[in-house]
Amino acid sequence: MYRIYVYDGNYIALLSLILELIKRNIKPDNIKMDDYEASLFDEVINLQVDLDMDILKKMKKSFGSYAINAMYYVYLSEEDNKELLLYYFFLNALKYHKDITFRRDLKCVSEVLRISQYVMHEGHRMKGFLRFKELENKVLYAEMEPTNDVIMLVSHHFQKRLKNEYFIIKDVKRRILSIYDKKKFVIVPENSFILDTDVLSDEEREMEELWKIFYRTIGIVERKNDRCRMNFMPKKYWKHMLEVEDEL
């Protein structure tokens, strides 16, 4: 049997569980969110753990902010065994403290750093590739389908940049919305908010057309390079980018 420890999806809950497992000297076969599909050989264990609300502060002091940021990015990733990876990283961080991020000879460290880079990079990309439409009521609305769960990273960015606008960002795959009301943003399930995204503002089509004209004009024909373009802007993002969606 495989001993699979489950948590409710919350990051603090995951960290609290990992710490508890380490304290009790338990080596889990895996750690999963409680809605995962258990196989025949899985023994699902729901350990009751108190949430340690100070855990991030304590970790930051002991492991350093670079390490705890990297851990958070791994949590946002779609990596299959990310929870187990974080368990091993945590275990080693208790041994190496702030030197943990220099220990790339350990597989769990090099993997955490690799995955966190990937998530951070996608977050950064979405800050550029996201496209808002202006709805009739002046609300800005965007849909995206990132591989990783970057809605939080992206929302923080637009909260600063567009602080005097209302905006809504939808993660199509995860069925969640980030809603910003000129003060703060909240992330809610898609079905908790009724949204009519079909009625656009008067100017919207005109602006979209101008942008497409600009996009087509700015490329230098003599330098055409599709491979280079695709390296920088992978096709998986094109569906929600008006200037290239026609080329799909």
Partner: peptide, 13 residues
């Protein structure tokens, strides 16, 4: 931040 990439592969910021 790069917002798009033109047909010649250059960044549009």
């Amino acid at each position: 931040i790069c917002h798009s990439f033109a047909s010649d592969g250059r960044c549009i910021s």
